[in-house]
Write a protein that binds this DNA or RNA. Structure first.
Lengths: 338, 338
DNA sequence: ATTAACGGTGCAACCGGTTGTACAACCATG
DNA sequence: CATGGTTGTACAACCGGTTGCACCGTTAAT
């Protein structure tokens, strides 16, 4: 077919082909009201003819934007994406940006090498905005972004971090989610409740527990709170140990749906019926939640909407909007495990 | 501390501060031999003083490069990264680029929306090169890249695809890996061998099987070849079915280490000893391989090196090198399961 | 003393777009 | 017919760097 076009057509060529000046060609292609319909048509035809696409570098220099937004990930990617819920979040971002001309790219910055490169490109202004997916760590980069004044959106709740009025923040209300889960247990009449959470140092875990306690108070003593990992296996192990310790429980609040699947599996194995003997509530509304038996009652975290929101705010900030803080609401999804 | 610097310092300011012209300042910062040591010192000091970092947009326009390399992912990210081995590959890329000034970014292009955005930015020349991680699909984008003449590296073996002499290719020799695994079985004296592979339509699976057969020939009949998924559960299920069908086997060749863990679990459960009664060989040298009991003998695919190689080739192509095809070699890792 | 060679520097053009402003052509109005 | 207001276009400057080339002041060679 066509030979590989090593040299891309420039605006000048389009202008010449259409018999107008560069400036007119530019305005015509950008649909300026100052150009006549007829000229626009001619220029567009010429552009199509030579297969013209405005060069990003020239355009970026002129308009002061690269139209690229970096999604900053400071953990190893495999850690992040082993939880498929995160791709929901990303989908939200791309969904929101799909109507704009902005392109999201993922920037891994887990090693210090990577962070240095990232820092360099931030300083060079390679990106118009940054969405930080896991702002708990990597504060050095945040500091850089702050100094440079790069529009930045933090996803996650940072307790009293120093950037509140410089960066935007989007997060789901984990405490609210915890309250919803605990409330559901209470309404169901469950009294002896155990919580199988994720890692103790995770901020979301802390908040969710606070939510549980806001409802259950003393009826959820420390010895009934188990910290573990996020996986199904962790839930399984934790439940086995519970049973071994002969702790009576008629309700288990889980830190994630994956944990919940493990918990349910362990109960099944022990001949304990869910939800007849014991109620289980998950967290996340992971895709497996609806598929397991019994279908899992869980707390839905609006990750996709969070992504959309983050991207939307990033665009607003690029256009000069002030930083904002947005709290997304959790939702109880009633299924069969309660 | 310092106020957010909304407006970054330009080269002109540095030049003025150092009392030289812009061109001299530029040359000094780029370490041109035409500038005296003394002037360089002065300029560098001035640059440090005002905290100067060359603006990516201006620089990109002048030198014709953005110094950003896109890592193109055409599958959902969660699918790719649920297998942690892939982050090895990415580490290889960043490792190789860390000595250059290039920044790798991940570009997800699984939806058609995303592909359109990506296409647009390719046309605009937002990236200096592209590394396609899963070039089996998304050939439309490859076509665009070909036409634009963007340096592109494909990771994976594409049987007779039409881009061989336009793009570079890097892949591991799966057939060789298959031979190594089968050879190890043979040397161990195993005769009745079963293969539990991944999906039948996966090119790597096809090649690995070809490698097995190159060594085992007729002693690996079709009825002993099982196609399944990549997960531990798949290996477990497949083995259960084997046992149910009372097929005698003294060796199992697995398509992935995760499959192998499931296989071993099923044998253990059935009271069959690995490696006394039956030998198991995995594939990938996944991080769990060394940790399970018995430690898994497996075929190591040099993913990190593949990543480094891909990035290196991308850099070479940016500098005008011709496309190349690189085959990485597999390696047998001897542990206890054989 | 004249000139060639050379190291160091600055002017100006360039990369490829966008945009403020001047200007020409046209129309309607007084 | 002169005037003023539109409308459509082009010139030129600008974004922020890099780079070819001319120029200057030395020093060394003739």
């Amino acid at each position: 077919m066509t030979q590989p076009a090593r040299t891309a057509p420039t605006l000048a060529e389009v202008a010449e082909a259409a018999g107008v000046s560069r400036s007119t060609a530019s305005r015509a292609l950008n649909d300026s009201p100052r150009i006549s319909e007829e000229t626009k048509k001619r220029v567009r035809a010429a552009a199509k003819e030579v297969n013209f696409v405005p060069n990003a570098r020239g355009r970026a220099l002129a308009v002061g934007r690269t139209e690229i937004i970096a999604v900053l990930v400071t953990e190893p990617l495999s850690e992040l994406f082993s939880d498929p819920t995160y791709s929901e979040f990303l989908s939200g971002i791309t969904e929101e940006l799909s109507e704009s001309s902005y392109l999201p790219v993922i920037l891994q910055a887990s090693s210090s090498h990577e962070r240095n490169r990232a820092r360099e490109h931030f300083e060079r202004r390679s990106f118009d905005a940054v969405i930080d997916v896991s702002p708990y760590k990597g504060s050095e980069l945040l500091e850089v972004l702050r100094e440079l004044g790069v529009p930045t959106v933090l996803c996650g709740q940072l307790e009293g971090h120093p950037y509140r009025d410089v960066f935007s923040t989007v997060y789901s209300d984990d405490e609210e989610g915890g309250r919803f889960a605990a409330l559901a247990m209470k309404d169901r009449g469950r009294k002896d409740i155990v919580a199988v959470l994720g890692p103790q140092d995770n901020p979301a875990v802390v908040d969710r527990l606070r939510g549980y306690r806001a409802i259950l108070g003393e009826s959820l003593p420390d010895e009934n709170v188990i910290y573990t990992g996020w996986s199904s296996g962790d839930g399984y192990q934790a439940t086995r140990q519970l049973l071994a310790r002969a702790i009576h429980a008629d309700g288990v609040l889980c830190g994630s749906d994956r944990i919940a699947t493990g918990v349910i599996a362990a109960f099944n194995e022990a001949g304990i019926s869910v939800p007849k003997d014991v109620s289980v509530v998950g967290f996340d509304d992971h895709e497996v939640a609806a598929r397991i038996v019994p279908a899992l009652t869980t707390i839905r975290q609006p990750l996709r909407e969070e992504g959309r929101m983050a991207a939307g705010i990033a665009l607003d900030m690029i256009n000069g909007a002030a930083p904002t803080t947005t709290v997304m609401h959790m939702q109880l999804v009633q299924r069969d495990s309660l």
